[in-house]
Structure formats: structure tokens, C-alpha cells
Design a protein around this nucleic acid. Structure first.
Lengths: 168, 168
DNA sequence: AATCTTATGTCAGCCTTGTTGACATTCCAA
DNA sequence: TTGGAATGTCAACAAGGCTGACATAAGATT
């Protein structure tokens, strides 16, 4: 388990983990996630895309040349679902799927220029809000934010997340 | 990436707000939210319900006797969408809608015994994970977590959130 | 060479949950 | 009395999940 920071047993943690405190955290997640997706959603609407397209663009950009199977695992959806989205992005010239070089069954995915443009636009919209939130809360709060989020992930996803974490 | 760091001004914030750091925060939100909803989702499936039902149960439980309009605002969906969900919950005997006493156009919403049972079950599943994450990250991290999430909300939603914050 | 397996794509159909638009009912308030 | 607010309902549609079935290509194994 993700064990890092200071820990329990200290008496001060008793009040801390009341259902009431937990409920506030739960609601904060719900409301914050809405804010988190709101700005990209508005942009996507102009293009006739949805969140699924955003996620695909993000992770293709992020893991240059990734395969369809990799993407499936990261996104946690079925191939049919992803395929529908990819088909649209490829048809619109935002994504390119090249036959794999070592294994020709695989398709390596790339963003075209246009794809990179949209990805940048979406990412920047999301960063603006994230940056503002980070600024408002301060560095120490951000560290805590990341720690809690990381501890909240499913184990296998946390591994995926961490493997993506620092490779750029 | 075309352009990297934002990097204005304030000394210690320099390294802090790189696009890279922001991207990690964005991915953390995405992956953590999946974990956050995973446990309730499994329970809901057994009952043939979806997340929309969970949200309705949560906020009806939370704001005893709330009106449909209040709920709409909190949930951020259309009345038609909410109505479909409420109809199901009422038909299944989990929610009761009583005609308003002061304004008889309004419907006051309550959980029945069965509704409270399911709500408790869902909430506890979600709390288990949240509690584990809080424990793993420690009190200071939790404070930061809450600060950043709050700063990430839309302004009007933050007001709603804060008004719900301490009234119990 | 034949066969098994993997990676991917595609078709069809279903579900939840969001949307709009139109229209009815109830009932408070001016 | 009349306007408007709160609510409900019906219909239609879309996005984006899902399952199941089947096709194709190509790597892997026997």
C-alpha cells in the first residue's frame, strides 16, 4: 500500500476520520471532477466530440506510438468502444494508425498536426484551471492532493499511473 | 511539446507549475476518480442501478426533504434526466416524494428505510476507500487534497458545496 | 505446413444517462 | 383573473459504455 506521509495512531487522527470528514471528501471529489472536465467539455462540443475523444487524444499524445491494446488498458474500456472513437479521430485526420514495424498486427497510434493542435488546446484549458487551483492552494497542498489521489487509485491503475509518471 | 513551462513570477512556484506537473495532476484526477467510483459501481450493478441513482440517493439522504429543483441544481442535470431516475427509485420504494407543505407544487424527497439501507451500503463502500487513502496519505495531505479540490470547483458549485459543508 | 493464438476491426444490439422540445397540471402571487 | 413557477410526462435523439459474434492478418508453436 502506498505508505508515505506521517501516520495514524497519533490521537489527532481520531476526529479526522469521522464519516462526516469522509463525506466532505466524497462530495469534494464529485464537485471538483465536474469543474475539472467542464472547460475541455466546452471545447469538445464545438468539434462534435466527447470526453472519450479527449481521453484518447491525451494518452496518444502522452505515449507516442502506443498500441491499441495499451490504450485499452489505460482507458479501461472495451475495444469496440475505443474503436468507435478512434475511427472518428482517424477519419477526421487527427490520429494516424500505422502498422507496427516489429509486429505487423499491431497499430501504432500518433497524433497528426491537427490532432496535436486540438490536444494542446484541450490540455491548456484544463491546465489553466489546475494551475489556478494549485496557486490558490499552495505547494504543500498540491503535494497532499497528489498523495491522496494516488492512494485512491486501484492498485493496477496506480502502477500504470506511476509508470507514466516520470518518463518525459 | 511545443511550449513548456508557464513560469511567471513568484520564486518557489517556478518549478512547481510546469506543464509536466500539471499533467500529472490531470492524470491523477482521471485515474483516482475511476477508483473513487469503482466500489459503489459494483454494488449498484447488483441492483440494476447506475451512478445517477447513487448521486440522487446521496443528496436526498444528505439534504433531508430537499425539493426536486434543489436536487437539479446540485446534480447539474435536467429535470427530465433526474425524473427518470427518481421515478425508478420511487417505484422501487427507495425514495418517497411528498407534496410540499408550504408550497404544494414542490415535492419534498425522502429516503425510505430501504433507500437508507442502500445509501448506507454505497456510502460505506466509498468511505472504506477514502479512509484508506486518507490514512495512507496522512492528515496534512488530506488538508491539501481538500484545498485543491475546492479551488478546482466552479464558483457557483463551490458555494453549493460550502453551504452543504457543515450542516449536520 | 498446419494449427493455435493474438491484435485488431467491425457489425448488431442493448443499456444508462445525458440532451431538447412540446405540452399538461397545479397552484402561488400579483 | 391571469401570469408564471414548479413539476411531471411523452417522445426522440446522441454519446458512450457494454456483450456477443465473426473476420482478418500475422506472429508463435507444434
Amino acid at each position: 500500500m502506498a505508505q508515505s506521509g506521517p501516520n495514524h495512531s497519533s490521537g489527532e487522527n481520531l476526529l479526522f476520520l469521522t464519516d462526516e470528514q469522509l463525506r466532505k471528501g466524497i462530495e469534494a471529489m464529485f464537485f471538483a471532477y465536474r469543474g475539472f472536465t467542464a472547460d475541455p467539455d466546452r471545447i469538445l462540443e464545438e468539434y462534435g466530440y466527447g470526453r472519450a475523444h479527449h481521453r484518447a487524444l491525451h494518452f496518444i499524445n502522452r505515449s507516442y506510438g502506443t498500441t491499441v491494446n495499451n490504450l485499452l488498458t489505460t482507458l479501461g474500456v472495451t475495444k469496440q468502444s475505443l474503436n468507435r472513437v478512434l475511427r472518428g479521430l482517424i477519419a477526421d485526420g487527427l490520429v494516424e494508425a500505422r502498422v507496427g514495424r516489429t509486429d505487423r498486427r499491431e497499430r501504432n497510434l500518433f497524433l497528426t498536426e491537427a490532432g496535436q493542435d486540438l490536444e494542446r488546446k484541450l490540455a491548456e484549458a484544463q491546465r489553466v484551471r489546475m494551475r489556478a487551483a494549485y496557486r490558490a492552494a499552495g505547494p504543500q497542498a498540491v503535494a497532499g492532493f497528489r498523495q491522496v489521489l494516488e492512494a485512491m487509485m486501484d492498485d493496477d491503475i496506480r502502477r500504470t499511473y506511476q509508470s507514466l509518471k516520470d518518463n518525459r
